[in-house]
């Protein structure tokens, strides 16, 4: 933990040093930035960004914002909730550390995602103080998420590695398309949860990095130029494109996560609040895990 804090402090001070150097956008580099725009030998990221941002990004976000909940509303109406008795035995699956880390990430997401939408539809909200506040909160709440993302990644990585059973899970979408309760041979996390883990952890890192680039904007980290071969302004353009595209995916899967936990399986959300999972839920939805727990004498 202490090492982690040191690393964070080092990173912050490095960022300060980077900010204190000459401008990478409006100084000498401006010539490179201007010459690079839309020329044959460049990636034309300026042109691409303008095209995508002006024509598509907001519409895709609107599609995700309306489309994903619509699909789940239909699922709720047609297939409905899966209800398992909560009167049977329980297993203590998430300790206080797990839950704390998860809750910090959860609260961050509750702020980051709505404020992100306010920025995307900033013209609808008329700009100014409200959208500026949203932008600032969007950045500030990235800090707690950035702090917990590594411990969260580490604490669940063992459970999140895909195995062959997961292919079967994907073939029937975990049995969520039928009203019947099927026995699903999943481990502690099923393939859907694993998918969310990877989207959240890897996608989260991508969002943090691309967001930080846009937030700090005028900084100098030589390594990044060498690594990507892009000029500074092109890195910013790439960040903006990546941040939006990753945003579509992250938001869509986040909505899924909320729906599954809060609606699709009635009361499942309590397991991450209290730490206890219900025997019947585990037996049906995570049968491989259930067998293992049984062997150990749990339940």
């Amino acid at each position: 933990m202490r090492k982690y804090i040191y690393a964070l402090i080092a990173l912050l001070s490095l960022a300060t040093v980077a900010l204190a150097t000459d401008s990478q956008i409006w100084g000498e580099m401006r010539i490179q930035n201007i010459l690079g725009y839309g020329q044959e030998e460049s990636l034309k990221l300026g042109v691409w960004f303008t095209f995508l941002q002006s024509k598509y990004f907001a519409w895709v976000f609107l599609g995700v914002l309306i489309g994903v909940p619509t699909v789940f509303f239909l699922h709720y109406k047609i297939v409905g909730q899966k209800v398992f008795p909560h009167s049977h035995k329980k297993h203590y699956a998430f300790n206080l550390f797990h839950r704390t880390i998860h809750q910090v990430a959860a609260v961050s997401f509750m702020v980051i995602i709505p404020t992100g939408f306010i920025i995307v539809f900033g013209d609808f909200f008329g700009g100014g103080t409200l959208v500026r506040a949203a932008k600032n909160l969007h950045g500030i709440f990235t800090i707690p998420f950035a702090i917990v993302i590594i411990p969260m990644a580490l604490m669940w990585i063992k459970e999140a590695i895909f195995n062959l059973e997961d292919i079967k899970w994907f073939m029937i979408l975990g049995g969520y398309l039928s009203k019947e309760k099927q026995i699903i041979n999943a481990t502690q996390f099923n393939a859907g949860q694993k998918m969310w883990y990877w989207v959240c952890v890897l996608g989260g890192l991508v969002m943090i990095l691309s967001g930080a680039m846009m937030f700090f904007m005028d900084f100098k980290i030589e390594m990044l130029h060498n690594l990507t071969g892009l000029s500074h302004i092109d890195m910013l353009r790439a960040s903006a494109i990546i941040h939006n595209v990753m945003g579509f995916i992250l938001v869509a899967v986040f909505f899924t996560h909320i729906y599954m936990a809060a609606v699709a399986i009635k009361g499942a959300i309590h397991s991450i609040i209290t730490g206890y999972v219900e025997e019947e839920e585990v037996k049906f939805l995570h049968n491989a895990w259930y067998k293992k727990l049984k062997e150990k004498g749990k339940f």
Binding site: I34, Y37, T50, I119, G127, G128, N136, M217, L236
Partner: peptide, 25 residues
Amino acid sequence: IGCGYCLYACPFGAPQFPREGIFGS
């Protein structure tokens, strides 16, 4: 709101952003 998108779109690097506020936003 000072998001910087106009700078990414501009072929001339014209839009500039003064640093203000506590977090250098």
